[in-house]
């Protein structure tokens, strides 16, 4: 299959290793990855902060850039969620029926990485090796917007050498919430504190998720506290093998 990678602006800029890992996994599975160079940002932060009109040109751009791609795959549940869950209402507001139709059609082809592997490709064992104790934080958008279900856990359990520990109260939000982390910094920190305690209780070495944004929030505090637990995007765990460590 030809897969169009939607890297997301955040991962492009701050977490390029996640994108490399996603390419590695898909190519290992025999698929061809395209990277449409005209892509920029989906506008999630604009929509979620209330700047809806500013996001419309970004939505149009996204639909144009990925027109005709067989599958659009992103290493972010919240960005994939923007396309599938937030774009349709925004497109309707423009009154442009062809845009609304294009948005719906693009959304149906847009996947978060782990759900793409498990649901679309039907793969759970991607041939990875990762000899570490790992816990997984199911991010809110992966759970309750995209409904990826247990796809990430199934992928992790199939990784050789990986010691998987479920995260207590895992389905509770970590407190990131995009601009929430800054606008409501105090409440965000209170939520983060509880998430850190849950992560530490697992005695994992690595906390994994399908969104680097939530991970940057959790990992940023783990690092500040010198907790001795690192973060990794699930794509980097799945890309790791005996010969190459990518997380």
């Amino acid at each position: 299959m030809r897969v169009a990678l939607f890297i997301t602006c955040f991962n492009d800029t701050l977490f390029p290793d996640t994108g490399k890992a996603l390419v590695t996994v898909l190519e290992r599975l025999g698929h061809v990855v395209d990277f449409p160079a005209a892509q920029t940002c989906c506008g999630q932060a604009h929509i979620n902060t209330g700047y809806r009109r500013d996001a419309v040109p970004l939505m149009r751009r996204f639909v144009d850039v990925f027109a005709g791609a067989e599958a659009v795959v992103a290493p972010s549940a919240s960005c994939a969620g923007t396309i599938r869950d937030l774009y349709p209402a925004l497109a309707n507001e423009t009154g442009d029926a062809s845009l609304a139709a294009a948005v719906r059609e693009t959304g149906a082809r847009t996947w978060e990485f782990t759900e793409f592997l498990v649901r679309r490709l039907g793969v759970t064992d991607v041939g990875a090796y990762f000899p570490h104790r790992v816990t997984y934080h199911p991010t809110c958008h992966s759970l309750r917007v995209l409904r990826v279900g247990d796809a990430p856990e199934r992928l992790l359990r199939a990784v050789r050498g990986l010691d998987y520990v479920p995260l207590p109260q895992g389905d509770e939000c970590c407190g990131f919430g995009g601009t929430f982390a800054v606008k409501n910094a105090d409440t965000s920190v209170a939520m983060l504190g509880d998430k850190l305690r849950a992560v530490q209780a697992t005695k994992a070495e690595v906390c994994v998720a399908a969104d680097n944004s939530c991970l940057m929030h959790i990992g940023g505090a783990l690092h500040r506290q010198r907790a001795g637990i690192r973060i990794a995007h699930i794509a980097q765990v799945l890309a790791s093998t005996e010969s190459e460590r990518l997380a």
């Binding site: 800029t13 390029p16 990277f35 982390a181 940023g220 690092h223």
Partner: peptide, 24 residues
């Protein structure tokens, strides 16, 4: 306003190369 982030969290070291640069 970024100080509200770094009050309790570090940011990881930014990469030397973006994904886009790597791909190119």
């Amino acid at each position: 306003y970024g100080a509200r982030w770094t009050a309790v969290r570090d940011l990881p070291p930014p990469p030397a190369q973006s994904f886009r640069d790597w791909w190119d």
